[in-house]
Design a protein around this nucleic acid. Structure first.
Length: 497
RNA sequence: GCCCCGUUAGCUCAUCUGGUAGAGCGCCGGACUUUUAAUCCGGUGGGGCGGGUUCGAGUCCCGCACGGGGCACCA
């Protein structure tokens, strides 16, 4: 909001701009304080959620009144006056309830005080349930307290906020104006709760590992860099929790998960926010097929938790395709038959596919073929399995396919939502993978893995065979709520200044 | 980083080729004891920022900021 709010001096015109609206509301607040030192109490207790009141009186006939008293608190969303009676709409997190104010119930002074409130003000109400003649469940106002004055007018109550800029930067306005926005973030909370509930129920231990890390790792991405003054050292905001969680398996915690923010210093888009929420879970004595079953069960539970009834089918086992097979089906290129930079480049150019072939190795090109020509078509939940080793530095070699690793990525709605491996547990192979990443770094690859000696030493202590999964929570929420942009499911998404 | 589009009242939107910027909601005053986008009468508020062309710019030109979509990178 602009801070440049100059007052036109003493010319008497220009009366109802924003400054004048605020001034009017401020004067009203002052009058309320002056008239009643007890105005704006510090608490209003023993309220019920509007949702539960609505549910309790479903059976009432139109025009029927009760003497059952309830207390609710919330924001005034609308006001309809009709002489000596008035209706107010009150909203709380759970819903909207109509209030019926009558001068014969409240007396003229309180009635005047109530009807002179502004849309946006917060009140607490005490009253009896009824269903109005027009059929709406309501509360007759027997008493009320003004809890807070809104000095600024709320967004339009019919059309709400449609300017996305304001919706994201001023999420509080979006939430107060839009029931669907409120519902989305309630759903997000339910989904996260379902994820925890599944993992807790399956014997996984929730843990917390460092966000500030001396060395970043566990994914291929550029980090945010920061500095600790007292220790005088560079620290990185984590890009993944992978390496620390695997060290916990070495330590014997056997089943662990962490749900929290990762940070990647890369572009923003409708599917990417620089800080995003990820859950990673690791299971000792399991492989990538075992954890695929877990992901299916976890997502199914999350979908049920919000009553998902969309197009995607999360029942049963999801479809499975192989990395190479999916690419062959979509492009006609058998990537495993042209396993060299030049050979694959030639095959791509021959078909005239729009793929970055300059300065790109076999694995990068193959991965781009997948994300460009396969991923958008993966609408129903699908596992793509058995990736090339070059782009999977922490994944265990495939038990039967040369040059591949036991890794899958899960896709749904044309978007990647999860990534998993049979974890690499052999320290010597892990050293070689780090060496290979180091060579890539020397060639200028910015997203290569730094060598993590402590991690390798941990593997040298003996790590159990394990399956591990990373699931993007924001994308899961997008999928289950039908949101088209990650900014819709993140309360305060990253924006330019 | 590149390309295209957008930015007008507190909110949602209009404004033909350049010529005094309109509406609904809101707000203020009045009427109304079952309204729900309540209604009726009267009043009220404005061109993202910086330059340029022109007698005159919301409108044409240049630059900037922010947003949206696409491309590139990524989960």
């Amino acid at each position: 909001m602009s801070g440049a709010e100059e007052q036109p001096q003493g010319d008497g015109h220009g009366r109802h701009g924003l400054q004048e609206l605020i001034a009017e509301r401020r004067e009203k607040a002052e009058r309320l304080r002056a008239a009643d030192p007890g105005a704006f109490p510090y608490a209003f207790r023993d309220t019920e959620a509007i949702e539960s009141i609505l549910a309790a009186y479903e059976h009432l006939e139109s025009g029927e009144e009760t003497d059952k008293r309830h207390r609710v608190a919330g924001r005034i969303a609308a006001r309809r006056e009709a002489g000596k009676t008035a209706f107010l709409d009150l909203i709380d997190r759970s819903g909207k309830l109509q209030l019926h104010a009558r001068v014969d119930v409240l007396g003229p002074e309180a009635f005047e005080r109530l009807t002179s409130l502004d849309v946006g003000d917060l009140i607490g109400v005490d009253g009896a349930a009824l269903r109005s003649r027009r059929g709406e469940i309501s509360l007759r106002v027997d008493g009320f307290e003004i809890l807070a004055k809104a000095l600024r007018p709320p967004p339009d109550r019919h059309s709400g906020l449609s300017d996305v800029q304001t919706r994201y930067r001023r999420r509080e306005l979006d939430l107060m104006a839009s029931e669907s926005a409120r519902k989305l973030f309630v759903d997000r909370a339910k989904i996260i709760s379902a994820v925890r509930s599944y993992l807790d129920g399956a014997g996984f231990l929730e843990v917390e590992t460092p966000v500030l890390q001396p060395l970043y790792g566990g994914a291929l991405a550029r980090p945010f860099t920061t500095h600790h003054n007292e220790l005088d050292r560079t620290l990185y905001l984590r890009i993944a929790t992978e390496l620390y969680l695997k060290r916990l398996l070495v330590g014997g915690l056997e089943r662990v998960y962490e749900l929290g923010k990762d940070f990647r210093n890369e572009g923003v888009s409708s599917k990417h926010n620089p800080e995003f929420t990820m859950v990673e879970f690791y299971e000792a004595y399991a492989d990538y097929d075992d954890v695929a079953r877990r992901l299916e069960a976890l997502v199914r539970l999350a979908a049920e938790s919000i009553g998902y009834d969309g197009e995607l089918d999360f029942q049963g086992e999801w479809r499975q395709v192989t990395f190479a097979g999916a690419i062959a089906e979509a492009t006609g290129i058998e990537v495993l038959a042209v396993r060299g930079d030049e050979e694959l480049r030639a095959a791509i150019l021959e078909r005239g596919l729009k793929v970055q072939t300059e300065d790109a190795g076999w694995a990068q090109m193959a991965d781009e073929l997948l994300s460009k020509f396969v991923e958008p078509g993966l609408v129903q939940p699908t596992f793509v399995r058995d990736y090339p080793v070059e782009i999977s530095p922490f994944s265990r070699e495939h038990r039967s396919e040369e040059g591949l690793v036991e890794r899958w990525e899960a896709f749904a709605g044309g978007m990647e939502i999860a990534n998993a491996f049979s974890e690499l547990i052999d320290p010597d192979v892990q050293r070689e993978r780090f060496e290979a990443q180091k060579r890539l770094a020397e060639l200028g690859e910015e997203e290569s893995q730094p060598y993590d000696e402590l991690f390798v030493q941990a593997l040298e202590q003996g790590m159990p065979p394990a399956g591990g999964v990373g699931l993007g929570i924001d994308r899961l929420v997008m999928l289950l709520t039908g949101a088209e942009s990650i900014r819709e499911v993140v309360l305060f998404p990253a924006m330019r200044e």
